[in-house]
């Protein structure tokens, strides 16, 4: 039995790898561009899910960390002449540093109060971006450039895709492995019961700090990648709407699950394309989906087969995130 399930897992993994490799070849140039966006959103969702789905910390400012990563990476790359491949982790590191900074108040807060603190951080970031137009371009935004690899500019979306795919794959695998080791189990422990975690020698404060730093690092990397993909940084993309969209990825995909993050990011990045004719309703659809999943299918898409097999939606609303 165990062999069969292992085999099924292996088959699923192989399918995922093949799909990831083939995806940008199947649909034209615009398809390749969308695939790049999917990669960026996968990184965002995986990081946020560690913080929210596993460590149980509400964050309404994930888009701020994406913004920090995007601005730092792009500024270092286009204006300071640093290599993109150094600017990218630098953006992630700066975002992670801000994540630690936010964790200082966040360590002492939970629930509504934490949500408010993160909302405050979101607003501060927006104001700072607007107030320093010399560096950030203010509300007009900032041009970004395509990275180069061994002297070749990655001008096409396909070239960019195959260059960043390994980075994204590493980040996904790291998250998955992290959840299998003591740090990841500590995340789950402080979500389920901070008190019980403490009696086992887990420091909730330290664990929250790590979770915030990790989510911010992932978001920062995604920000740098996103700027390279889109070629432009639009500060309007980092507001409360974006933060909620990122939460939607993980709620729809499945809280606490790396596979869920990936599924959520893929589905919700491609969904607006299906709504082409009714583009202006996209935001409404997003928010409606989020509300619908929270109230009716809180386990997310990743647990959908099990939920269906059990015959009906689970009775407890949105409680336990799915297992990693």
């Amino acid at each position: 039995m165990r062999g069969a399930s292992d085999l099924r897992k292996l088959a699923a993994m192989a399918t995922a790898v093949l799909a990831a490799l083939a995806a940008p070849l199947l649909f034209g140039t615009y398809g390749a561009y969308l695939c790049n966006l999917v990669l960026v959103n996968v990184v965002i969702a995986v990081g946020l899910n560690l913080l929210t789905g596993n460590a149980g910390q509400i964050s309404l400012c994930n888009s701020s960390f994406v913004a920090i990563g995007a601005y730092v990476c792009t500024w270092l790359f286009t204006q300071q002449g640093l290599s993109f491949w150094l600017a990218l982790p630098a953006g992630g590191a700066v975002a992670a540093a801000f994540g630690c900074l936010l964790a200082l108040p966040a360590m002492r807060l939970s629930g509504f109060y934490l949500a408010l603190a993160t909302l405050g951080f979101l607003e501060i970031t927006e104001v700072v971006i607007e107030q320093f137009p010399d560096i950030t371009g203010g509300i007009r935004g900032m041009l970004a450039a395509r990275p180069t690899l061994f002297g070749v500019t990655l001008a096409t979306d396909r070239a960019l895709y195959y260059t960043i795919l390994p980075i994204v794959a590493v980040l996904v695998v790291v998250a998955r492995n992290l959840l299998a080791c003591d740090t990841g189990r500590a995340f789950n422990a402080i979500r389920v019961s901070p008190l019980a975690a403490q009696t086992l020698g887990i420091s909730p404060a330290r664990t929250k700090l790590i979770a915030f730093a990790l989510a911010a690092f992932y978001a920062g990397i995604a920000g740098g990648l996103g700027a390279a993909v889109v070629g432009f940084i639009d500060p309007a993309e980092f507001g409360a709407g974006a933060a909620l969209r990122e939460v939607t990825f993980i709620v729809v995909g499945g809280l606490g699950s790396v596979a869920g993050s990936v599924i959520g990011a893929i589905v919700l990045t491609l969904l607006p394309e299906l709504l082409r004719g009714v583009q202006e309703y996209a935001d409404l659809v997003y928010a409606g989906l989020l509300l619908g999943f929270l109230m009716l299918l809180p386990q997310g898409l990743v647990r959908l087969p099990e939920t269906l097999r059990r015959g009906r939606a689970p009775a407890s609303p949105a409680g336990e995130p799915a297992a990693p």
Binding site: G111, F112, A240, P298
Partner: peptide, 28 residues
């Protein structure tokens, strides 16, 4: 009323989403 016993995460995100839906509808 369905959310009163839900975890705070659900309450925060659900009310946030409801608000955004109202705003989007008004903007449309």
């Amino acid at each position: 009323r369905r959310l009163v016993r839900a975890p705070e995460f659900t309450i925060v995100i659900a009310t946030f989403a409801l608000g955004l839906m109202v705003q989007d509808a008004i903007r449309l």
